[in-house]
C-alpha cells in the first residue's frame, strides 16, 4: 500500500476515536452504570425491607417539621427530581434556606454530603435538616415524643429494633434509629436505567444522534468528565467553577485556596429534572448551565479546569441532549402516613 494511503487511513482512524486529543474510548471507561452490589452499606449489611419502608414513611411525614407543615419530601420531591424546583428552599417557618436543595439520586455511593461536604455519614446526616433552624426546625427530643404518640410507629420501630419480649411502648423510637431508617430509604433511590445506560449495555437505538455527539463533547472538548466522572457522574470532590457568590463553600469546613467558593460536584443522573442549578440555584436551565461553562464561568477561580470552551450552538444542543439522556425518573410510591 502506498505510504500516502496508509497515512490517510491512520488519520481517519485517529479522527474517529479522538476529539481534541482525547481518547474517547478510554474516556468512556470513566463512566458506567452504577452497580447496587457496590453500595457501601453501613456495617457492610443492606437494610431490611421493613427499615426501608419505615424510612419511606418518615420521609413523607410532616410531623418531622416544627410546624408539621413539611416533610423531607417537600424539598426532595419525587415529582421535582427529588429537589423542589426552587432556587433556594423554604423552611418550616416560611423562610428561605441558604442553599439549593440537592437531589438525592444515587446518594448511596456518596462519600461526602451537603454542598460543602461537612458530613460523610448518611445515617447521621438524615436528622440534621430536621434540626436545622432554617429548615424543619424540630427538636429531636420533641420529635421522638411526637412519634411515640403514633401507634404505627411504636409497632414499626419495636418490630425492627426492639426486644421481642418487651412491650411496643415506643422506647425503641430514638433519633439515631430515625436517621438510620430515613437513610436506608434514601439509599434505595437508585437511578440506573436511563437511555445512556441502555446505550452502554449495547442498545444501538438507545441514544439520539444528538446525544451521541453530546457524549463525545462531554468526554472530549467540553471536558465535563474531568469532574462529572464515574457511574454517578460526580467525582465527590469540590470545585470553584466561577459562580458569583459570597458563599465560602468548602472553605468554611476546610479552609484552603482551592476550597474557597468550592462546592461538591453534583451527580448528573436525572439532572434534566432537577432545575434550577448550582449551590444557590442561580442558573435556571441546562442550556444556561452549558453556556455558563462555555464562557468560563462568571467569577475568577483558581481552578484551572474552568476555562472558556469553544462550543457552537449545535454543540450546546447536543450536550443538553446527552444530559437529558441521563434521565430515569424513579417511581416512588407515596406511603400512607399514619
Amino acid at each position: 500500500m502506498h505510504l500516502r494511503h496508509i497515512l490517510i487511513i491512520f488519520t481517519l482512524a485517529s479522527c474517529w476515536s479522538t476529539v481534541s486529543g482525547v481518547d474517547l474510548a478510554e474516556a468512556r471507561k470513566r463512566l458506567g452504570t452504577p452497580d447496587p452490589a457496590t453500595i457501601p452499606w453501613p456495617d457492610g449489611v443492606p437494610p431490611s425491607q421493613a427499615l426501608v419502608d419505615l424510612g419511606r414513611t418518615l420521609f413523607f411525614d410532616r410531623r418531622l417539621s416544627a410546624k408539621q407543615n413539611q416533610s423531607c419530601a417537600s424539598c426532595h420531591n419525587p415529582e421535582l427530581g427529588l429537589s423542589d424546583g426552587l432556587a433556594l428552599g423554604i423552611g418550616t417557618n416560611g423562610n428561605r434556606v441558604g442553599r439549593n436543595a440537592p437531589h438525592l439520586y444515587n446518594l448511596a455511593w456518596s462519600t461526602v454530603l451537603y454542598w460543602d461536604g461537612r458530613m460523610t455519614n448518611m445515617d447521621e446526616q438524615a436528622t440534621k435538616p430536621i434540626q436545622s433552624k432554617s429548615q424543619m426546625a424540630m427538636d429531636l427530643g420533641e420529635l421522638e415524643a411526637r412519634l411515640r404518640g403514633v401507634a404505627a410507629y411504636r409497632t414499626a420501630f419495636h418490630s425492627i429494633f426492639g426486644d421481642p419480649a418487651a412491650p411496643a411502648d415506643g422506647s425503641a423510637i430514638t433519633r439515631e434509629r430515625l436517621g438510620q431508617a430515613i437513610a436506608a430509604f434514601e439509599r434505595t433511590l437508585v437511578s440506573r436505567d436511563s437511555a445512556f445506560d441502555r446505550h452502554l449495555a449495547g442498545a444501538k437505538d438507545a441514544l439520539m444522534p444528538e446525544a451521541v455527539r453530546g457524549l463525545d463533547l462531554f468526554l472530549g472538548k467540553a471536558n465535563c468528565i474531568a469532574c462529572h466522572s464515574g457511574p454517578n457522574f460526580t467525582d465527590d470532590s469540590f470545585h470553584n467553577i466561577g459562580v458569583k457568590s459570597a458563599d465560602a463553600g468548602r472553605a468554611a469546613i476546610v479552609p484552603g485556596a482551592l476550597a474557597q467558593n468550592a462546592f461538591r460536584t453534583p451527580g448528573l443522573r436525572n439532572i434534566a429534572l432537577t432545575a434550577p442549578y448550582m449551590h444557590d440555584g442561580s442558573i435556571p436551565t441546562l442550556e444556561a448551565v452549558v453556556r455558563f461553562y462555555a464562557r468560563g464561568g462568571d467569577a475568577p477561580t483558581p481552578d484551572t479546569l474552568v476555562r472558556k470552551i469553544d462550543l457552537s450552538e449545535g454543540d450546546i444542543r447536543d450536550l443538553i441532549a446527552f444530559l437529558s439522556a441521563l434521565s430515569d425518573p424513579l417511581r416512588i410510591p407515596i406511603p400512607a402516613v399514619p
Binding site: 465527590d236 470532590s237 468548602r250 484552603g256 482551592l258 468550592a262
Partner: peptide, 13 residues
C-alpha cells in the same frame, strides 16, 4: 509506631 492520614481538601475521597 504511629500512622498519619493525609488527604486533599477538595478531593475528600
Amino acid at each position: 509506631g504511629t500512622v498519619l492520614r493525609c488527604g486533599c481538601k477538595v478531593h475528600p475521597a
